[in-house]
Each structure stands twice: as structure tokens, then as C-alpha cells.
Design a binder for these strands. Sequence first.
DNA 1: GTCTATAAATCGATAGAC
DNA 2: GTCTATCGATTTATAGAC
Lengths: 200, 200
Amino acid sequence: MSPRSEEANTQIKDDRQKQILCSALKVFIHKGFAAAKMSDIATEAHISYGLMYHYFQSKDEIYAELVRNAVDSSRRVIEQVSAGDMEPIDKMRALVARIFKSVGEQQSAGYSFVLMMEAMTSGVYPVPVMGRVHGSGRPFDLLVHVIEQGQYMGQIAQGDPAELVMTFFAAILGLASLKVRGSMAAMPDPEILMRIFRPA
Amino acid sequence: MSPRSEEANTQIKDDRQKQILCSALKVFIHKGFAAAKMSDIATEAHISYGLMYHYFQSKDEIYAELVRNAVDSSRRVIEQVSAGDMEPIDKMRALVARIFKSVGEQQSAGYSFVLMMEAMTSGVYPVPVMGRVHGSGRPFDLLVHVIEQGQYMGQIAQGDPAELVMTFFAAILGLASLKVRGSMAAMPDPEILMRIFRPA
DNA sequence: GTCTATAAATCGATAGAC
DNA sequence: GTCTATCGATTTATAGAC
């Protein structure tokens, strides 16, 4: 009841939520949404099964929260890179480097990126994702704009910019999936992927 | 009991098995292994729920059979392409064209390819897949050999061939996933992907 | 061979003690 | 705030009639 214990409780509550979300992210990535059991997440988070439901209403809610976070953090990274004063081609290079690094080092940013992409590729998940990714000011269209600038400056190959971004996203999705799930020892040389932008 | 009905029964049995496998492939690709229900497969195949278990012992068995088929058919395609008398770079081009076409037209070959790749990226499925993909005479290594030849002839960019093949596989996995699940209207221009092989 | 009905198991969600 | 125990719904798998 004292002010001190209230603060402490708030702190605990915050910590637990982050702890659960972090554990859930790992489990969802490794097993997929449907195969991931709430008990898996509880075990990973080192808490009891029932406590999960003290912090989240359902498995869907946890997943939805994770996807929101993933899309937002991905958008921030892309915004930050695309707003810089680099050449367009170097913006893409910087983005690839950053994503490859976080995926390669198994940071939560890497997991988040995979989660966002997987949520995009599936209709069975409880969150509509495309609307958060595709649209003015959203991750996808920010990159399309960078590509268009690069094409105008002759740094990036001609052709439909959206097609190029999709191929770019797809390749990263595939690479990240293979890496995160242990089918690949390390992320490849980023310059291999950068070649898809190279003009004729 | 007559010879004729025995033959007919064998025929029916064969047809039903193929019918179930074909339906299961679609369902597994669209919903994932865990989310795919046996009832979904039965509905898709227009048969009763119980009949599934007359032809297969379990959901795992169906999945295992599908992965076996997928790896084998992928291997045949890659063997066929790699054994041809084209230039190495054109072998890769032919392979990309063939995969893009079957994925784009939603042929079962396209689904099979996605299934094989997804089975590779997950440890939760009931079949060990990497051993069937990676190894002498297996899909992965056949392509590594084509790449090495292309590098020797100066048609393909230098660098670790295995890294290049992995990136190639990953990009196709991502593109096929996006396409098969409806996040992409059409497969992109194959030449975009071919650029990852282009020498400096 | 094919179906319907049911058993058995799994898992998400809740209740209630501490 | 945290736990254990249980409910209820869903789904895999089986049994048995036709």
C-alpha cells in the first residue's frame, strides 16, 4: 500500500511483461504461431503457466503486441536510414548491413524482423499486418522511394521499384529464416544481396 | 474377390492417396503444419474425416511423405538442369525460370518447392530434411558445383559458392512464400534475382 | 472402401489458494 | 503477484456400422 511498494510493483509488472514478450518472440520464431504453446513461453520465461494470463489476455494478444513492436521498430530503422544524407544506394547498403548484423548476432531486432515478415506472409495470424507495412510512410513505401531516387541518379537498376523492394524483402526474409532457425551458420556477404540493385 | 475388382480397388487406393496428398500439400502451405487440421485436408479432398486414416496413419506421416516427394522432385529438376549442356550461368537461369513459372502458376511443383524449403527451416517438423538436401549428389551440392564451374569460366561472381547458393535458395524461398500466400501479385522478373550471380 | 460417432489427448483459458 | 489445479474446447485418432 505504501508509495514505495506501488512503484516497485509497477516496475515488476513492466519487467515481467518485457520478459514474457521476449520469450514469446523466441518461441514464435522457432516453432511458428500455431505450434507455439503457452507452456513453451512460460518455461522460456521461467514463470508459471497461470502467470502468463495475469499479464496478457490471450496468446493472440501476445502475438499482436509482438507484431506491433516488430513493425514499429522496423519502420524506425527504415525511416532513420532513408532520412539520412547518404546516396540512395548507400542507404540500402546501410539497411542491409544493419539487418544482417542483428539477425547474425541473434539480437531481438533480428527476430523481430523475421516475425514481421512472417506475419506478412500468412493470413492465419490474428493481426492484419500488410496495412501496417504497405502504405504512405510505411516501411515498404519508404524503401520504394529510396529506390526511385537511386534509379533517377543511375545508381540502381531500372525496373519496377516495388518489384525490386519485394525481391529485396523476400531475400532477407528467406536468409533470416534460414539463419534464425539454424539452417545457416552465418549470414552471407551483404554485397551478394546488394547486386540485385546493380545497374546493367 | 474377382481379379477385376482387385485391380479396380488398387486403382482407387492409388487415386485416393494422391488426392489426399495433393489436398494436404495445399493446406500445409497455406496454414503451416501445426495450424493445418486433418479436417481441413479431408474437406479439401472431398472425403470424410475418418477415411484419411484408412490411407495414412497420422498427420505426421502425410507430411513426411509430402516432404520426401518435394525433395525428390526438386532434386530431379536440379539434376536435369545441371546435367544439361548449357553454360553454367544459363543453367541457373533455366532453373530460376522453371521455379518462378511453377510458383507463379500455383502448380503443385511450386507448392512442393516451398514445402521443401520450409521443412529445411524448421526443427519442429517430423522429418529430418537437411540430410536429404545437403550432401553429395543432393540438390544443394549439385548447384554448388554449377556455381563453381561458372566462376571458373568467369560467368559468375567470385566468392564462396555455398554462400551464393544459400542466398539464392533463401531469396527463392522468400519470394515463393510471399507469392503462394498471396502477399505478392506475381513473381518478379527473374533477371533481378540473376544479378546476384553477375561478376563485378 | 466409406462413412458417422466416439474415445483420448492436447492446449488455451480460468479459478482460487497463498 | 505468483502459483497449482481444473475446466472447456478443439483436434487427433479409433471403433464400428454399412
